[in-house]
Design a protein around this nucleic acid. Structure first.
Length: 264
DNA sequence: ATGGTGGAGGGTCCA
């Protein structure tokens, strides 16, 4: 079964691309971020006609996450703790044999700002929650835009990114805590010890390219989107890839989808 | 030093 996570940067702007994805790959589950619309304006009936049930945590203009699944959806939760609920950044549910979550971690805006502090607090609470989730014996999958680059080769120019937003030590260590909690990084980070060259082949794990300055054409990308798997789910992992052709379409999202295949 | 682009919504804010 295929699970796709995708920061679409407005669901209503990206409907054509989502339909293309569905027609080409027919994923069982699609985790969406930055839908940028309240639930009542989410295109639920169109997606239902495409074969998907929807769970939506919507918000006007900003943020917003959703889960689409071919299987029935139950046990929907829109928070992982009792803080950080003012913005629609999390949704979790049970569908089929899986518990899945779609997450949109705050950007942080500026290193040292109050928003940056909130981002680190958000990640702290998240890793505490996921530690409990990882310890449970479930097929658990969380995917989304974590707004953090984990390793040096997850940014196009590590020297230039040093100390910058998305790449500070504090952000990176907060993301490492999720791995330490016992969840597997499905896209399989090729860390510097395994992969020491800096070629274009190395950069196929980028998932985001800024709209500005021709970043995509220059492959000035960053890996911001991740899929993490519980031990049980990780045993079923067969493949993960970035669908970067969706970033090359006309009027694209600034993020490419990430597709994970599980043999369940 | 700033802008470079795009989305939401009809101001600017946000990324």
């Amino acid at each position: 079964m295929r699970i796709v996570t995708w920061n679409v940067n407005s669901i209503n702007c990206r409907l054509d691309h989502i339909c293309t994805l569905v027609d080409q790959l027919s994923p069982e589950i699609i985790l969406l971020q930055e839908i940028k619309t309240p639930a009542e304006r989410f295109p639920q009936s169109l997606l239902f006609d495409k074969g998907y049930n929807c769970a939506v945590n919507g918000q006007k203009s900003y943020n917003g996450v959703a889960v689409l699944s071919k299987s029935p959806i139950s046990d929907v939760k829109t928070a992982f703790c009792d803080q950080y609920c003012a913005e629609a950044r999390y949704i979790e549910c049970i569908t089929g044999r899986l518990r899945v979550a779609s997450i949109y971690v705050p950007n942080g805006r500026e290193v040292g700002s109050s928003y940056y502090g909130l981002k680190l607090g958000f990640m702290e609470q998240l890793s505490a929650y996921l530690e409990r989730e990882a310890a449970s014996d479930e097929y658990f999958v969380i995917g989304g835009d974590f707004n953090i680059a984990l390793n040096d080769n997850d940014v196009w120019n590590p020297a230039a990114f040093e100390g910058q937003l998305l790449f500070t030590e504090a952000e990176r260590s907060s993301l490492k805590k999720i791995k330490q909690a016992g969840l597997a990084d499905a896209l399989g980070v090729s860390d510097q010890s395994i992969c020491d060259k800096k070629s274009n082949d190395d950069c196929d794990k980028f998932t985001w390219w800024d709209y500005r300055a021709g970043s995509f054409d220059k492959n000035h990308g960053v890996r911001l989107d991740y899929v993490f798997l519980s031990a049980l789910a990780a045993k079923c992992l067969t493949q993960t890839e970035v669908l970067r052709n969706f970033r090359a379409l006309l009027r694209p999202s600034d993020h490419a989808p990430v597709m994970t295949e599980l043999n369940i």
